[in-house]
């Protein structure tokens, strides 16, 4: 049983409100998908969960808490290396480390645990097999920097699960992958979510529907983004309460073709800044 709880979490970055009173609780294993438009702070929520925001240059103000199995992830007694063994974080475009594929997965184990070289090798190989990389590459000594986007994404997952965390945070893992690669990735996520709680940030409605047991929607509000919808996937997708969420789902599922029918609210959410961000994502997603 894995329990992740957000208690009235509010975040401000350099006095700009990003998240407003985020309050929910999920019990794993399984996949939880967090949806919402670009630039609403979904990634920030993930990064906060693994305390990544601490390494930013910006000044963060936090109120509220995030609890993993009843214990705050912000507890000063919890070291970063310990946190990484409880919560794995896979950024949108994972950065491959220096060296081979195998070295990438062994790296954190080697430098943050006291396991023997043999045990490290065993764990790394198991993690790589779990994400289906082993069968795909002729050798695990291949330089990680030469991997394709989809392979890098899965090596990043292996790198995180080698540390045996109970929670995995994934930020837009399907970005820039072709449908075949997405399908492969989906299978891997499904596998890893058998024993772990996977928190998936995405704006891919279809992916979320196929994978997630629970979903949440965050939308921008006056004092930062709020969680406007939360519940079992079927319930939220079939009977969304919020009108914007309803449109988001309909548009994302390809059910609404006529853009003239768009709700004003949905249009106003798009700021120019978010537009450029989305464009940047597109450009970077190209091979």
């Amino acid at each position: 049983m894995i329990q992740l709880e957000y208690q009235n979490l509010s975040l401000k970055s350099d006095n700009v409100a990003i998240l407003d009173q985020i309050n929910f609780e999920i019990d794993g294993p399984g996949v939880f998908a967090l949806l919402g438009p670009s630039g609403t702070g979904k990634s920030t929520l993930l990064r906060a969960t693994q305390r990544m925001i601490e390494s930013d240059d910006t000044h963060w103000q936090r109120s509220g808490d995030i609890l993993l199995n009843g214990k705050s992830v912000f507890a000063s007694s919890l070291g970063r290396h310990q946190l990484a063994r409880q919560i794995g974080y896979i950024p949108q475009r994972p950065r491959m480390l220096h060296g081979s594929v195998l070295a990438n997965v062994e790296f954190a184990l080697k430098h943050t645990t006291r396991l023997s070289a043999e045990e490290i090798r065993t764990k790394a190989l198991a993690a790589l097999a779990e994400v289906d990389v082993t069968s795909e590459l002729p050798t695990l000594d291949k330089a990680a920097s030469e991997l394709s986007g989809g392979q890098a994404q899965r090596v990043a997952i292996a790198r995180a699960i080698a540390l045996n965390p109970s929670v995995l945070l994934m930020d837009e893992p399907s970005t820039g992958l072709d449908p075949f690669k997405v399908q492969l990735l989906e299978q891997v996520i499904r596998n890893t979510a058998r024993l772990r709680l996977v928190v998936l940030v995405t704006h891919d409605v279809v992916l979320a529907r196929r994978l997630a047991k629970w979903v949440g929607f965050i939308l921008p509000g006056e004092n930062g983004s709020r969680l406007v919808e939360f519940g079992a996937t079927e319930q939220v997708f079939d009977r969304p309460q919020d009108p914007v969420v309803k449109e988001f789902i309909a548009l994302g599922s390809g059910l609404l073709g006529d853009t003239d029918n768009l709700d004003i609210a949905a249009r106003e959410m798009k700021t120019p800044e978010q537009d450029t961000r989305a464009d940047a994502d597109l450009i970077l997603a190209l091979p």
């Binding site: 310990q82 480390l97 430098h111 943050t112």
Partner: peptide, 20 residues
């Protein structure tokens, strides 16, 4: 991104510096 990646994996500043 290299440093951030190492932070996410729980590595210390010095081991990140030295190894990456």
């Amino acid at each position: 991104a290299l440093r951030k990646q190492c932070v996410a994996l729980g590595l210390t500043r010095w081991s990140t510096l030295w190894n990456q």
